[in-house]
Amino acid sequence: MKVFIKFDFNTVCKKILEEKLDACQIKYKILGFGEVQFLEKVTPEKLNLFSKSLGSYGIEIVENQKTILIQKIKDTLVDMIFNENVNVKSSVYLSEKLGYSYGHLSNLFSEVTYTSIENFIILQKIEYAKQLIINNELSLTEIAFRLNYSSMAHLSSQFKNTTGITPSAFQRIIKKRREISSKNIK
């Protein structure tokens, strides 16, 4: 027997942070967007212990200012994409949230990530579309609507441009993969 599992990454990460911070006896406040505020002075030993305990989860403490800002841009964008109520342009939303001009953010982003903010948004939207396609609860038209595409055709063509395959081929391939892996488990 097997089941499919949906994750809420924010909750998962927050839970891990809480557990590990408690285990290291650090007083803290989780500010969201990957920021944790320590409410007391933390010794380097404690910080080191905390950092090590996160390693196996693929979570790491970021130290470089540039990296921190890039991470904030990414988190803000992902939040914007997954939160369907945001209706302002991404450039406006970003500079309002982070307090820098869009030009500055956009240059920094391209320099560090090797891609543009625009491409990052497309990639994330297509990733979200993939997740929804796999969950099989919504039609492609509904997915297009939810991700703010003007039409299903627009979503399909952006999907094809980004991945090189059509949404239906993607769905077919993932389905076949699952059939194979469930055969192997039996």
């Binding site: 990414k74 990639l123 993939k130 997740q131 796999i134 090189g164």
Partner: peptide, 12 residues
């Protein structure tokens, strides 16, 4: 670098 789901990574 972005923690995307590699199971869904298909590119042609």
């Amino acid at each position: 670098t972005n923690g995307l789901n590699k199971d869904n990574f298909l590119l042609r």
